[in-house]
Design a protein around this nucleic acid. Sequence first.
DNA 1: TATGAATGAGCGTTCATTCAT
DNA 2: AATGAATGAACGCTCATTCAT
Lengths: 209, 209, 209, 209
Amino acid sequence: MPPTNGSNAADRPTQILNAAIACFAKRGFHQTSMHDISAEAGISVGLIYRYFANKEAVIAALADRHKREIQALVEQARLAPSLLEAMEVLFTAHCCESSPKVISAFVVDLYAEAARNSDVADFVRDMLDTLLTGVTDLIARSPEAAQMQHGLEPREVAELIFAVARGMLMRDILQPPQMTAAERRTRQLEVTRRLWRLLFENANEPALA
Amino acid sequence: MPPTNGSNAADRPTQILNAAIACFAKRGFHQTSMHDISAEAGISVGLIYRYFANKEAVIAALADRHKREIQALVEQARLAPSLLEAMEVLFTAHCCESSPKVISAFVVDLYAEAARNSDVADFVRDMLDTLLTGVTDLIARSPEAAQMQHGLEPREVAELIFAVARGMLMRDILQPPQMTAAERRTRQLEVTRRLWRLLFENANEPALA
Amino acid sequence: MPPTNGSNAADRPTQILNAAIACFAKRGFHQTSMHDISAEAGISVGLIYRYFANKEAVIAALADRHKREIQALVEQARLAPSLLEAMEVLFTAHCCESSPKVISAFVVDLYAEAARNSDVADFVRDMLDTLLTGVTDLIARSPEAAQMQHGLEPREVAELIFAVARGMLMRDILQPPQMTAAERRTRQLEVTRRLWRLLFENANEPALA
Amino acid sequence: MPPTNGSNAADRPTQILNAAIACFAKRGFHQTSMHDISAEAGISVGLIYRYFANKEAVIAALADRHKREIQALVEQARLAPSLLEAMEVLFTAHCCESSPKVISAFVVDLYAEAARNSDVADFVRDMLDTLLTGVTDLIARSPEAAQMQHGLEPREVAELIFAVARGMLMRDILQPPQMTAAERRTRQLEVTRRLWRLLFENANEPALA
DNA sequence: TATGAATGAGCGTTCATTCAT
DNA sequence: AATGAATGAACGCTCATTCAT
């Protein structure tokens, strides 16, 4: 009686998407064959086509799911008790072991794909806009924002935060594979706090000194 | 008197690499066929194999060249009259129209490749280390560093700068293709100055006010 | 009281064959998938296999039905008040709009299939023999035959008539699709009468002149 | 030193087309795989694609070649010393053993294809028009035409001749495979002469009687 | 040095057929 | 009687790589 098993035959599309993201993370979109996905999922190739029109549709579905996860992440961040904690939620989501989560390699592949395929570019741009808007709002409404002395608009701060996030996500890729998700998470938290201090605190510290 | 003409038949490897990076930027590593490269270079497929063992070797050679260009960029940045100008050199190198320079899509592809191929990962890590060390040194020796009040070590500042740089490089990919290199460069300069103010100036400005 | 309603669920085989011939006429045997047939019939794929062993069996059953229709056509022609009218019945049967009748594309496909499958060839040969014998008999017993001056045996005349019939059936395929069944029928009648004059009248006409 | 060997590597396109028509005649367009063709030609699959864009292009090239053979046949018929001999040339061309000639099964497949693909239909219609025009002209200029008493226009006679030709070509398919080309040719000549008598002589014979 | 014909494994995709329900 | 999920061999086609010239 496997209830929440992500690979359960009862939800083939999810099972296929989980297998697909595992393969894409390991080998990238274009080096992953439909056979790779079917083998990872433990099903036949033909079965994938019962649920997805073609390989592109698998990628699109995965991108859609990623977008929904991202939106959920923003909602979750909104509930955080402080802006710092909200940022920590957003910044460490991709430091995870398991498949149905945001994975660095997948996102970098998505950007690489966006460089040649304008449909993908539109999609990623839209996804990024959702994130930016969410975080801009988060900042604008936070008490810390009032104390910012660097003169940047909330949107500009959000852009800077996401530039760092993307940059760290790429950095993540270079970590030796034996590094655990926990270690990567720790590293990421350090960066977040460093950025935090820069954006929201350093104008105050002289006052305290 | 070596012929430095990039497209000269006398320097086949360079001619091939120029063709390759043009193709890779347009279509990515794995969607670019050896025929694509030979056609772009105006030579036959077989000739590529006289100079490069296989497709991977072409990518590796291109990565090597990229590394040398990056090193040259650091040297160039070192000669800049101020740290801000040095950063502007480093941050706008990828906003260029033509082939033998840093190209966003190529770099993102390189990171994507690093995610699956540990040789590539080692290479990119090494390249990044070169850059980081160069810039750390640049910061440590700059007069501005003495005035920094945010408590970050020069290496940490360098890491932050490159995180933003990588993040902006990914952002660059999403810009509509009709945006010119000049426009993208302007955008990039804005970010650099914003980051600059954050890292080196904002603690001072209240003092001046 | 057997339900003769062609599309009634109570007569699955007929329903399936009707769907099949519609598909075959539209796309040909080998471009028609079992799914196409099941969709056209509004049933599931599996159900076809309850009534027919495989796709070939569907074709064979359709060929059988076609043979029975052809035999009925010969019987009908036999009842015609004159030989000319009998010929007109035989020659215009394939100029029809709807499914369960003689369809040009299906017959040409059947001959094409006969070229590679000797079972099909035997079947078609047998079907043709039935037709030829029937028409030979028709001619031999007609009053017009006595006046023929071209010296051909009734069987030879029948062969010639069917050669023209097959030839016109192929011609029919080339007609633009917007041509209606009625128009094609008119065209076919012209040919029939022309052939008629040639076979049975032209020796007489000078005498009448 | 194979000089005129139709399968010589020196003329790959011809070699491929010869292999293709052999396969198409044996199995039909849609049951013939590219592998079948490459095996028949004794080359690899990939090589076919050096000379033909895809399977359709192979069929199109074959159709084109067929059209040119047909045109040559009409020219050849024009040179025949009498109209009867011209008709014999036209009617017996498809009774041949070897590949690069008109083959009944191929033509019937072409018509079957024309039924679903309007490009093919246009092509076949054009080919038929060439033939009809050529033969109409042949008839109009022949001395026998003057004596025709059946009242048919040369174009109508030509249409009738080709209807019979197509009909006999379909008949040809049903002949047992052990029947030699020579036997089929003999059969075909009989039909031609029978038709000849009908069209051009029977008005005269009473006069001779 | 340079060509491009040739190979064949592997890709994305389809579909006849089976079978648990 | 009826469904449609599931299989997997086979299709059309591509491309990295080799090699005779």
